[in-house]
Every structure is written in C-alpha cells, then in structure tokens.
C-alpha cells in the first residue's frame, strides 16, 4: 500500500507536472530548432514571440468571453488560439520582410543575426507590454480538474491524493496533435520536404528550383504557430507573465541544444529531459521517502525551486562539454 502511495506521489508531483511542462518546452524548442535549421541562427526573440502570441490569444479570449462564447468544459483560449497564431504569424512575416530579409541577402554571419534578433526581442517585448502590461494574468476557464483529489480518494481508497488538472491534459493532447501535424507536414508534403531539403543543403535546394522565400515564409509561420501554442499552453497551465516567458528562453534553448540544434526529434526529447530534471531536482522527496520507510529530517529537496533554471544550465553545460552536437546526432528535418 505504501509503495502504491509512493508511486502516486511521484506521479502527482513529478510525472504529471513534468510531462505537461516538457510538452510546453518541446514545442518551444521545436520552434527554435526549426528557425535554426532553416534560417541558421539562434533566435533570441523566441521567448518574447511566445509572450506576444499568448498576449494576443488572451485578448481574443477576453473578447470571446465578453461576447458570451465558450467551449464548455474546455478553456476559451483554445478557441482564440488560431487567431493568436494568425496574428503572430503575420507579425513574424512582417518582421522577416522588413528586418531579416536584408541580412539573408548580404549573407550576414549567424552572430549578426543573433544580434538582430535581440533588436526584434526588444520590439516584441515592448509591443507585448503595450498590449497587455507586465502583470501576472490567469486566463484559464472551463473545467479545472479532470480528476480531483476527492474523486481519486473515493475511487482508490489511497491516502495519497492525485489530481489531474484539465490544463495538464489539454497541454499533452494539444502538443501531441501539433507535433504529429508538424512531422506529417515535414515528412509527407512537398513544402515540408522542400524545407528539409533547404535545411540539409541550401545550395542544392536552390539548384533544384526550391524557392527560398517560400521556405523561409513557411518556416516563420510554423515557428509562430509553435511559439504561440507553447506560450498559451504554458500560460493555461501556470499563468501569463511576460518576463517569465523571456526566462523560458534558457530551458527552451537548452532543450534544443541537448537534442541537437536543427533536430526536431531531439528538441522534443530535450524538452522532456529538461522538464523531468527540473521538476525532479526541485521536488521535495520527503513524502515519498516516508512511504518507503525512511523518515527524513529535511525536505529531501536537492535544489530550491528558485534554482530551477540552474538545472537547464547544468544539463546544457554537461552536453556542451561532452557532446556539443547534442545527444541526437545530426539534423534530421
């Protein structure tokens, strides 16, 4: 019985939150890795792109709520998400047209593009602040729980509670659908294949008649969709605060690098590696140890939650030291 309780505690406090967080990071890392693969630079504006997309989605959500539209048990934000994606994609395309395109034309060094993306980061950060301010915002509505602690106890009779928030389930389902759609697109469609070809060998892709402007445009649209979806899911699961999204840049990049920049499967794996490490290292294991017959004095928490970003950093450093190309070799999209 105690063993079961221990497992439930692990499930409740580690596995479920880390799975949801990992899915959010994976979507973010996919966007970073996609831009890296096609446009060949690390996009420092990605965190703020996530924030912008989420801010727009929140505003549309408010509008829908005011108009009395709802999705029943599901959060209204899911209905607003396509609008958020569309507006973010439009902004990304405009940014590309006005800002990035010139640097592609002059074949600027990647580090210059990183610098340019810092400028874009400032812009998007400012626009997000103008739109929605800097305060913390919760925008989840609909049913809060799929499984409540009470229901769980009634069903199982276990002492240890387990709750499954609907936002966690939605995160995993939406992320799975998005990832499936992305991989299907990259593997099966002509445009998707041309993107992989462009990422693989730009010169040969040009020779084959692949239109680089089209590839780049599609890349921005997909990156906007991934960033907005990741941001909205994160915001539903936790809350929206523009600065927290900027801070997500580190775990998102760490996930992309751990998986090998430019490798989408690696980005997903990297997202979950980072999320599980972060949650596992910052969880207080006292309760689980108690069920297993060891009564600890302390919390048995390896690191306080304030240091969760240190976990991404340490994993990043370890990978850079031992396997700088990432755990999953080679680009595969």
């Amino acid at each position: 019985m105690d063993l079961l309780n221990a497992l439930v505690a692990i499930l409740n406090y580690v596995v479920i939150p880390a799975t949801a967080y990992g899915a959010q990071l994976a979507l973010g890392a996919l966007g970073v890795t996609l831009i890296y693969g096609i446009l060949r630079f690390s996009n420092f504006a990605h965190g703020d792109t996530m924030a912008f997309g989420t801010a727009v989605t929140i505003i549309v959500t408010w509008g829908l709520q005011a108009a009395g539209v709802s999705l029943g048990p599901l959060p209204t934000a899911l209905l607003a998400l396509p609008f958020g994606i569309a507006i973010t994609a439009a902004l990304m395309l405009a940014t590309d047209r006005v800002i990035y395109r010139y640097y592609r034309k002059v074949h600027a060094a990647p580090v210059i593009l990183v610098m340019v993306s810092v400028g874009v980061m400032f812009l998007m950060n400012g626009i997000t602040r103008l739109l929605i301010g800097v305060d913390e915002i919760r925008f989840d509505d609909g049913a809060r729980f799929l499984i409540t602690a009470r229901e769980w106890r009634d069903w199982t009779g276990l002492a240890e509670p387990l709750t499954l928030r609907s936002t966690q389930a939605i995160t995993v389902v939406v992320a799975a659908v998005v990832v499936w759609a992305l991989f299907w697109f990259l593997a099966k469609t002509r445009t998707g294949k041309s993107m992989r070809a462009f990422s693989d060998n730009e010169d040969l892709a040009l020779l084959s008649g692949i239109n680089p402007n089209r590839v780049v445009a599609v890349t921005w649209i997909i990156a906007a969709a991934l960033a907005t979806t990741a941001g909205v899911l994160y915001g539903l699961d936790k809350s929206f605060k523009a600065f927290n999204y900027f801070q997500l840049l580190l775990p998102v990049f760490a996930a992309a690098i751990v998986g090998g920049l430019g490798n989408p499967l690696g980005a997903i794996a990297g997202g979950f590696i980072i999320a599980f490490s972060e949650v596992g290292v910052t969880y207080a294991w006292k309760k689980v140890a108690g069920y297993l017959g060891y009564n600890a004095d302390g919390l048995l928490q390896l690191l306080s939650t304030e240091y969760k970003f240190a976990v991404s950093f340490v994993i990043l450093i370890i990978v850079l030291l031992f396997k700088p190309t990432g755990l999953f070799r080679g680009k595969s999209f």
Binding site: R190, R196, A197, D200, N201, L204, S208, G330, S332
Partner: peptide, 24 residues
C-alpha cells in the same frame, strides 16, 4: 548539374532526394 561535393540531401531518403530533383 551535378556538383562535385555536397551534391545530395544527406538526411533525406534516396527517394526524397530524387523527388527534390523533380521539384520544378
């Protein structure tokens, strides 16, 4: 035209390489 080096898409299958050849 077949360039001397870097003349395939390394992470794409043989079939996909041929498909890309027929892109136009």
């Amino acid at each position: 035209f077949v360039p001397q080096v870097n003349n395939v898409f390394p992470t794409m299958t043989v079939e996909e390489n041929l498909e890309m050849g027929a892109f136009i």
